Computed example of a mutant assay.
Amino acid sequence: MITCVVEYVIDPSKIDAFERFGRRWIELVNRHGGTHHGYFLPAEGASDKALALFSFPSLAAYEEYRALFGVHPDFVEADRIRDESGCVLRYERTFMRPLLPEPPDEG
């Protein structure tokens, strides 16, 4: 499994647009083979930082999903929310592998 962590710098005055953008991408990731773990929005502290975390079974599965960017109409529409609203100022994507709890010993 590979987890993508996206760190956003957002326009705090456009949080509603960012939420619309995020809800759309949650749906798209889940529909196209991934598991979206949610968007994490400012609550206290810096008001211009947000995170998204989602996982795919493999990097190859993620690449299949990425191949739809700019091509599939649903992906184009989701990006249009970001582009037209200006809610995202910049973002950085990092891939991580989870270290999960080991299952309990059944012995």
Rank of each mutant, 00 (worst) to 15 (best):
R23H: 14
R82L: 07
F56V: 07
P42T: 05
W25K: 05
H36Y: 04
H37M: 07
E44Y: 11
D83Y: 07
T35R: 15
P101Q: 08
L41K: 12
F21T: 08
S13Y: 06
V76E: 09
K14R: 15
S13W: 09
L51G: 05
R66E: 00
D105N: 14
S85D: 04
D11Y: 08
E92N: 13
V71Q: 09
L53Q: 09
R80N: 09
M1Q: 11
G38R: 11
G70L: 05
F40L: 12
V5E: 11
F18A: 04
A67Y: 00
H72P: 01
L51F: 15
Y8C: 04
V29M: 00
E92H: 13
E106Y: 15
F95L: 11
A46M: 10
D48W: 08
M96D: 06
P73A: 09
D83Q: 11
F69R: 06
D105G: 13
R80C: 10
E92V: 13
K49A: 12
R66W: 00
S13K: 14
R23C: 10
E27F: 11
R20A: 12
I10H: 03
K14W: 05
A17I: 10
Y62Q: 01
F75K: 04
I15H: 09
Y91C: 08
S47Y: 09
I26F: 05
A61K: 00
E27T: 13
Y8A: 02
R93S: 08
C4N: 10
L99N: 11
L100P: 00
E63M: 01
E27L: 04
V6E: 03
H36W: 04
I81A: 03
R82Q: 14
D83T: 10
R23T: 12
P57Y: 07
I81K: 04
V6R: 02
P57M: 06
R82I: 02
F54V: 03
P73M: 10
A50F: 03
A78M: 07
S58T: 14
W25R: 05
R80M: 09
H72Y: 06
L100D: 06
E7C: 12
F54E: 01
E44D: 10
F75V: 04
E27N: 06
P103V: 14
D79Q: 15
R82D: 10
M1C: 08
V6F: 08
H36A: 02
A67F: 00
L28T: 03
E102C: 09
S85C: 02
A61I: 03
L99D: 14
E44R: 12
V9M: 11
H37D: 03
R20M: 08
E7I: 13
R97D: 09
E27Y: 13
A17N: 13
V71C: 03
W25D: 02
P12E: 06
R90L: 12
S85R: 05
V76C: 06
C4Q: 13
L28Q: 04
D11W: 07
Y91V: 06
E77A: 15
E84N: 10
E92S: 14
A78H: 07
F21A: 07
G22Y: 04
P98W: 11
R93L: 15
E19K: 15
R82H: 11
H36F: 02
F95P: 00
T3D: 05
